[in-house]
Design a protein around this nucleic acid. Structure first.
Lengths: 356, 356
DNA sequence: ATGAAAGCGCTAACAC
DNA sequence: GTGTTAGCGCTTTCAT
């Protein structure tokens, strides 16, 4: 039927010809333009269907100056956090019938390269920048090009952003401990220069202050005050720092805390190991709350703060789509609230445990 | 300098004009064509650099009938396996200077939709289909269109594929147990209809046969012979089936096995839980080997079979690129070998343990 | 070696 | 309403 051209996909010309109309008409029904007589529209649609015609994405993109594609630049997968985020992004993108190009950033050189690519070459309709700081040079570039940009887990005054509310998350964690009756609390966290570490610390202090509890000396342990090989890894949020920090806490006789807020689950795991080696049990000897809700947290029954990354990914895409459709939509900086996941590491006092 | 057009990216025309050459010439240096005088080439390159010019991907794609993009269709992330795979895919794709469009398949309707999209809209130069069976209808379609396709973790006679060698992996796992001196072995696995389950079983049998060991009745437990809610989940590879299967094994007095090969780590976790509840210890009371090397495996010290997904992703992309460059390249069905990761769940006999 | 011109498949402005 | 035509930004003959 399709003759010699049978193996090549149909073009708008063939559709037009078979339907006995001009290509403009076909284009119109494709974009379901305002006024087309129902008859011709039906006829064209029929041919389209018969030829199994689908418009050529690049030709459309070129003519329309739109790609129906967005790019996500993200550091590749340090676990759960990014996987969930990517899922959310992917799903929302698909729902809008957009394609998602994934650029993974392993070092800062990559970032530049891909940013440039997204900006100039690939002409995506919008970009999502995840966890990476946006330099002023690129900020200007995005503005000049009027290319919609949404930041996720990072921020910049001039662009829309979605970040986790670290402070209120930490606050909720500590409040939970306090509600359970704990009065002598400690905190283990990452490097003091780390922004999340700072915010989580603020939340911790705030919760203590509200309960009229003060933090004795030595009950706050930041990674950078420790010694050890991998101390600097991942902003101090790693198993070894958790382990060493807990060892330090355990040496505190007399003022040993009854509960500790560990600013990351991975550190909490290290802390648990240290406790175990000292013959101490969680939560009997010491209650623990983590932060992140990594996969292992569920397995070991660690009560923790979950960051709703899936949702964050979705919302970021929704926002990006809104910006694509209305570039003048006012800037929004959204702070996503966390969720307290209660498991076994704090024991139960007046609380009902939610077992998963 | 760029005047009113300053906010739009430069085109090949502007480059040509500023360099005092025709657009054809610019195009030639862009594609570093054979013969261009070093001088003009230098001059053009200089202008390109000054204008910060980068070719427009869609225009190039349209003219060249190539998109420099591939698509990966995959069921979205059931953990580690897919994350590693995606990392490998992403990295190899980037190395070839291709872009990666990610289509996530949540149900079979998605699969159809995206397959059609990739196939007809000519957005991509090749596709990677992961873990999903390819229907004959689409197989024909890919052939007709001559669109390069590589299957990963799934296969079809007519297309290149990369799959894990389930059989030899299982064989290695069981051989390990046998070398450790175990003579009474059992196996816990997923549904009997599951292809991986079948292959792993074959590997198990082969290892036993080679050692002259026979499998007494009742020492092979498939998920579909169990009862319980989530028994059917994920082809029977889930925690509950592992748990129940182990319970069943534990009821076997007299012929209780000293070691069991569990065909998935997640089931091994369930099995361990059942043992723990019965006051039994791993490996003292029973040795365990899993399959998959999920994240938790390391945490609980489970000896297991690792599937090198990162590598598989990379190789699949390499193959796809080869096909894109030479569509007539002969078909290859690659079987990727697994790796035995020795941890603590088998104890040590004559073996040296590799501790991670 | 290089300029001119004809597409690539589509959209959109312009006629009628 | 619908056909015609001029681009979109590039590659690629075809001349020269």
């Amino acid at each position: 039927m399709t003759g010699l051209l049978g193996s090549m996909p149909a073009t708008i010309y063939e559709v037009a010809q078979k339907a006995g109309v001009g290509i403009g008409t076909v284009s119109r029904v494709l974009n379901n333009s305002s006024q087309i007589s129902p008859q011709t529209r039906a006829r064209v649609l029929q041919v389209i269907d018969k030829l199994n015609y689908q418009p050529h994405a690049m030709a459309q993109g070129l003519a329309r100056k739109k790609s129906l594609t967005i790019a996500a630049l993200m550091p590749f997968f340090t676990g759960h956090f990014y996987v969930e985020l990517l899922k959310g992004i992917q799903q929302a993108t698909a729902r809008h019938k957009y394609d998602l190009i994934l650029y993974s950033i392993e070092d800062l050189h990559d970032k530049d390269f891909y940013l440039k690519r997204a900006l100039q070459q690939r002409r995506v309709d919008g970009v999502l920048l995840v966890s990476l700081p946006l330099s002023d040079a690129y900020a200007k570039e995005f503005q000049r090009r009027k290319l919609p940009l949404v930041l996720v887990d990072t921020s910049h005054a001039d662009f829309d952003s979605f970040t986790v509310n670290n402070q209120s998350g930490a606050h909720a964690a500590v409040q939970h401990l306090i509600r359970l009756g704990h009065k002598r609390l400690a905190m283990i966290t990452g490097h003091r220069e780390s922004k999340p570490a700072q915010l989580r610390y603020t939340g911790f202090r705030r919760a203590l202050a509200e309960a009229g509890i003060k933090l004795p000396e030595g009950l706050l342990i930041s990674s950078d005050t420790l010694s050890g090989e991998s101390i600097t890894l991942n902003d101090g949020f790693n198993k070894e720092t958790g382990y060493r920090a807990m060892q330090k806490l355990l040496q505190l006789n007399g003022i040993r805390p009854t509960a500790v807020f560990v600013a990351s689950d991975i550190q909490a795991l290290g802390a648990m190991q240290a406790m175990q080696e000292s013959g101490l049990r969680v939560p009997e000897d010491m209650a623990l709350v983590g932060f992140d809700d990594i996969e292992l947290a569920e397995y070991v029954g660690l009560t923790t703060i979950k960051q709703p990354m899936f949702q964050m990914g979705q919302r970021a895409v929704e926002r990006l789509m809104a910006l694509i459709n209305d570039p003048n939509s006012p800037r929004q900086h959204r702070r996503i609230e966390t969720e307290l996941i209660i498991r076994d590491s704090c024991g139960a006092k007046k609380e009902i445990k939610h077992k998963h």
